[in-house]
């Protein structure tokens, strides 16, 4: 039988074509599965980072509630302690005046011996001076406590909203003027795109910018060619503000706690640890968000997103 007559030759050729087609389909399917798997992995990664972000926000929200509660509880005793210390100050002045009058009209030599020896034994001159100072220090301490309580309240955005239409770029310019001295040796690069006015509390937002710029300046301390870039632009219905520096950057342990109240890397007495948490509270109260990316020894970048109202 010749090949032309053999029906299986044709069948074989058909089978071969069908097999090649099946192999091609298999490859196509593998490719599709690979791509879908890739997309799934990407989504999973995004989901994980979103979850981490949510947990962080949850933590900060809890801290906000806690801060508001603590602030409220401290505020009441603080008010009467401060008021009592002020009253004590005026009472002390009265006592001191009485003492001066007594000493003027009844010199020590004329005093009964018991009183004279008691006065001499207890060094009332020193007590007088020290009591004044003690009360002043106490009042100063109370002021500091009041400031911290206020910061906690700010973080918990327990503030009445005073909103007005304002231009973010103007706020940035005026804040930069305020910081002329601390930024003296730093190159400041500005790319401020025209922005629509938004309903906001301009002084609060300026405080956020001030905090970020101050931190950037601190991160640039002792660095060569220090530089801060400030960029604003409109992205859809959002205003984005990025402030980046080429400073010392932060390790992950700092980045993940940066918005937590009282978290600070500065030396004791140099920072309250409330600046970034207050900034977080302010941006949140404006319906926006604040994020940070940082690399050690390379620098940090803060991004604030604010909705256009």
């Amino acid at each position: 039988m010749s090949n032309d007559d053999n029906p299986y030759i044709k069948a074989y050729e058909r089978e071969k074509r069908a097999r090649l087609e099946a192999e091609r389909q298999l490859e196509d399917s593998s490719r599709i599965i690979y791509k879908k798997n890739q997309a799934l992995e990407d989504s999973y990664e995004k989901l994980k980072s979103q979850q981490a972000l949510m947990l962080k926000q949850e933590k900060l929200a809890t801290l906000g509630t806690l801060s508001a509660g603590v602030a409220h509880e401290i505020n009441n005793p603080l008010a009467f302690v401060a008021s009592n210390v002020s009253t004590l100050q005026s009472y002390l002045q009265l006592y001191q005046h009485v003492q001066t009058l007594l000493e003027t009209h009844y010199p020590r030599e004329t005093m009964v011996p018991a009183l004279r020896s008691y006065l001499e034994a207890n060094d009332f001159e020193y007590i007088n001076e020290d009591a004044e100072e003690l009360l002043e220090d106490t009042l100063e301490g109370l002021k500091r406590v009041a400031n911290i309580v206020q910061s906690l309240k700010n973080f918990a955005y327990d503030q009445p909203a005073k909103r007005q239409s304002a231009d973010i770029n103007e706020g940035i310019e005026s804040t930069l003027k305020l910081l002329k001295l601390p930024l003296e040796h730093i190159e400041v690069e500005k790319h401020l795109a025209p922005l629509p006015n938004i309903d906001c509390n301009p002084s609060e937002l300026n405080q956020v910018i001030l905090n970020l710029l101050t931190n950037a300046a601190d991160a640039l301390d002792g660095r060569s060619q220090p530089k801060i870039s400030i960029k604003t632009y409109l992205n859809g219905s959002e205003i984005l503000i990025t402030i980046s520096d080429n400073g010392c950057g932060m390790p992950e342990s700092v980045v993940s706690n940066i918005f937590v109240p009282f978290f600070t890397t500065k030396d004791v007495g140099k920072g309250t640890g409330m600046g970034m948490s207050i900034s977080y509270g302010i941006v949140e109260s404006h319906g926006g968000s604040i994020e940070v990316i940082s690399e050690e020894d390379k620098g940090s970048e803060f991004t604030i997103r604010l909705p256009v109202t």
Binding site: K10, R14, E15, K16, R17, A18, R19, E21, A22, Q25
Partner: peptide
């Protein structure tokens, strides 16, 4: 037609 049929196509 070429007469070849693949199951999944």
């Amino acid at each position: 037609e070429d007469g070849a049929f693949t199951a999944g196509k």
